[in-house]
Design a protein around this nucleic acid. Sequence first.
DNA 1: CTTACTGCAAATCGTTTGCATCAGA
DNA 2: TCTGATGCAAACGATTTGCAGTAAG
Lengths: 148, 148
Amino acid sequence: MPVEEFKNKLKEQGYKLTPQRRHIIDVMLNNKEHHLSIDEIYREVKNTCPEIGIATIYRTVQLFEDVGILSKQYFDDGCHRYEISDGERTHNHHHLICNSCGSVIEIQDEYFDALEQHIEKEKKFKITNHNVTFFGLCEKCINKSGDN
Amino acid sequence: MPVEEFKNKLKEQGYKLTPQRRHIIDVMLNNKEHHLSIDEIYREVKNTCPEIGIATIYRTVQLFEDVGILSKQYFDDGCHRYEISDGERTHNHHHLICNSCGSVIEIQDEYFDALEQHIEKEKKFKITNHNVTFFGLCEKCINKSGDN
DNA sequence: CTTACTGCAAATCGTTTGCATCAGA
DNA sequence: TCTGATGCAAACGATTTGCAGTAAG
C-alpha cells in the first residue's frame, strides 16, 4: 500500500506525519476517483477528526502538493480541486466536464502523447506538465437536450 | 475596424458604450498579444482614465465576457487573465507557458481538431470549449539550462 | 528535548454589492 | 427623461498569518 510511501515522502524532507495529515491522506485515498475542493476535504476530515481547523487543511494540502502527494487542478467552477497524485499517471490524464450536469469524466489517452511530441518538435518546447480540460455535453445530457 | 463591432455587440443587448468601457477595449486591443489580469487592466486603464474604480473594471470585464468581447483563461499563476475574443479563433488556441521565464506562447494547431474529433467519437462527449495549457521550458530556457 | 505542527482568531487579499450620483441614448 | 453605469466604501468569502500551546521524532 502507498501509505508507507507517503510517509516516506514526508520524512525525506523532515516533515512529521501527524494524525491530521493521516486523516487527510485517508480522505483523499477514499476519493481517488473524485476531485475534492478544500471545503469538501475539510468537511470529510471533520467526520473522523472534528477538532481540525480549516487552516490546517490549507497548510497540509499545500504541503502535500509541494511534496508530490497531491496534485491541484483548476476547474471552471471557480475553485481548485485536489486528488492523490501518482506521478506519471497524473501527468497523463485529463478531464471532460459537462456544462449541463457538471459531471467530471477522466480520460487518459495515448492521443495526447502524439500531440505533445508534435508540439515539442514543432515549437521546440519541452513539455513537463499540462492542464487540459474540455467542456461540453456528456452522453446523458446530449440525449436529454435532444428531448427538449 | 472591430471597434464598431464591439459597440454593436453592446447595443444589441441594451448596454451603453461609456468612456470607461471604451478605455478598457482600447487597452485590450493594444495588448492583443498579451493576457491581462484584472489588476494589469486596471493599471493600464488608469493611465488614460485615472478616476476609474476597480469595481468598474470587474463589472465591465464580466460584462464583456458575457457579451463575447473578451475571453477568460485561468493560468496557474493564480489569476484569471483576459484577452480580446474573436470567436472561432479563441476556441482554437492554446498556450505554452515556460516554467522558467514565464513567457506565454500561443499556439493554434490543426492537431487539436483531430484530437477533439477522436475524443468526441470515443467518449460520446460533445466538446464546446476547452482549456488547454502546457507547462514546460521554452526554447531559450532549454538552451540556458543546458549551460548550467 | 527540540522543532515542527496545530487550532484559533485576526489579518489580508481579491472580488462583489449597495447606494447616491452621473450621463448615454 | 429614464435607465443603466459609475465611484466609493462597506461587505464578503476564501486564504494566510501570528501566536501560544501541543506533540512527533
